[in-house]
């Protein structure tokens, strides 16, 4: 019996290993729509892991990897707003809500919710947002679009810049897992 427990134990951890999918080249884009200018930046170095067994889900966004149209914008983003020297990455850790194991052998599209802790600029907030999970040819990908508020994460926008930078930032994430 003891051996059986041990076997189950090993088997389970082995299985959960096998059921984790990840990517190192996930995509995150954000967009700020303010009266004077629109600011957009893209990041292709986001890593993410999704556990297909229990729906737990995490991603890590290296702030310095955001690419802007203008070099100076990128510098100000890192230096003045995100303080990426102090807070090098943003992260999300949580899970897909009401997760039931998905069937990888069937192509399908699921609209689900993910919830957990979003950490940006060293400040954490509990969030629940919609996510679209797609299974195609045995591969899983997720895509989500949601709004985050600068003020929720302690990112101060000086009064003089209120017309240039929006407090509400639209964020798009896309992860194609291998």
């Amino acid at each position: 019996m003891k051996k059986l427990v041990l076997l189950l134990f090993i088997g389970a951890s082995f299985m959960s290993q096998a059921q984790k999918v990840s990517t190192r080249s996930g995509f995150v884009k954000f967009f700020s729509d303010a009266p004077v200018e629109d600011i957009t930046a893209e990041n292709n170095q986001v890593s993410s892991i999704l556990n297909l067994e229990d729906g737990s889900f995490a991603f890590l966004v290296p702030i310095k990897a955001f690419q802007f149209e203008k070099a100076l914008m990128q510098e100000h983003f890192n230096e003045n707003y995100m303080e990426s020297g102090k807070f090098p990455s943003a992260s999300f850790k949580g899970s897909i809500a009401d997760y039931t194991k998905i069937d990888l052998s069937k192509d399908a599209k699921y609209t689900l919710q993910f919830k957990g802790t979003m950490t940006v600029h060293g400040e954490s907030q509990e969030i629940t947002k919609e996510v679209i999970l797609v299974v195609k040819g045995g591969k899983v990908s997720v895509q989500a679009e949601f709004l985050l508020k600068c003020s929720d994460y302690g990112i101060e926008i000086p009064t003089a810049k209120k017309d240039n930078i929006s407090n509400e930032i639209s964020v798009t994430v896309k992860f194609e897992y291998a």
Binding site: S16, S47, I49, N51, S56, L60, K93
Partner: peptide
């Protein structure tokens, strides 16, 4: 532990 683990792996 598996959830903590996800973050550690990413980091």
């Amino acid at each position: 532990w598996a959830q903590e683990d996800l973050m550690a792996e990413l980091e």
